[in-house]
Amino acid sequence: MRTVRAADIAPQTYRWSIEARNLTVKAGRHQAVNGLDLSLGIGVHGLLGANGAGKTTLMRCLATVIQPAGGELSLLGAEVSRGSRLRGIRRDLGYLPQAFGYYPRFTVREFVEYVAWLKETPAQDIPGAVQRAVERVGLEAKADAKMKSLSGGMLRRAGIAQAIVNDPAVLLLDEPTVGLDPEQRLDFRDLLRTLGVESCLLVSTHLVEDVAAACTDVVMIHEGRTAWTGTPEELAAAGADSAPGDSPTERGYATVLGRYREQAVR
């Protein structure tokens, strides 16, 4: 059984799990994130945007992999640019990178355990945390199989298992649904909903229907800036009938993006 840690019941001293003000992040020499504002709390947040909109760069910055070039970023109430608190923030962070790297000869359980250790999970909590993470992504049957023997979908689930093993307060999943079959995606949406009950979950995707089905709200970015925020229902409602798309949410996405582009030009 999971033990309750002091940190779990300590009162939260910050308003937003993720808070960015005028954030700029460089990808190489290019300003991939350019003056972005963001305030995210508990819940499932969908990060939408075209390819090249800066989603992955933003995710990498939120995961503390790259430093912001300017602006302010606070994670769990701590200023990210001050390196001293980075270690503490990272203990409560879960991250599934877009290009998920893994050791092919590790078993799923070993890999998840390894990541738990990297996240400095207390020794006595590790076995339970690993088992729970593997169960939550439905990989119990494959827990002792080598990572290299997994199919694409199972590999994604193993990637999510490693991201949630420390019960992160901020969970960042970059393109988690790539390689999942339709049934797996339905299961995955259920998983997102349960994870979003107690943590701030940011899911980057370009698949609009995932967002509509599982997210509590939507952040749309375009050329490194926040283009729109709101709930999936608001997004669906915003859709003009004339806009391209096969569902209300898709039409909403096209409409909102089109409107933002027009404003940006002006």
Binding site: T64, R90, Y95, P97, A99, G101, P104, W117, L118
Partner: peptide
């Protein structure tokens, strides 16, 4: 090994310092 298996990205987001890793 970390480089060969593209683990740098994931590792950079974890608290355990390189020396410990």
């Amino acid at each position: 090994r970390e480089h060969r298996h593209h683990l740098g990205e994931l590792l950079a987001s974890t608290p355990r310092p390189r020396a410990g890793r």
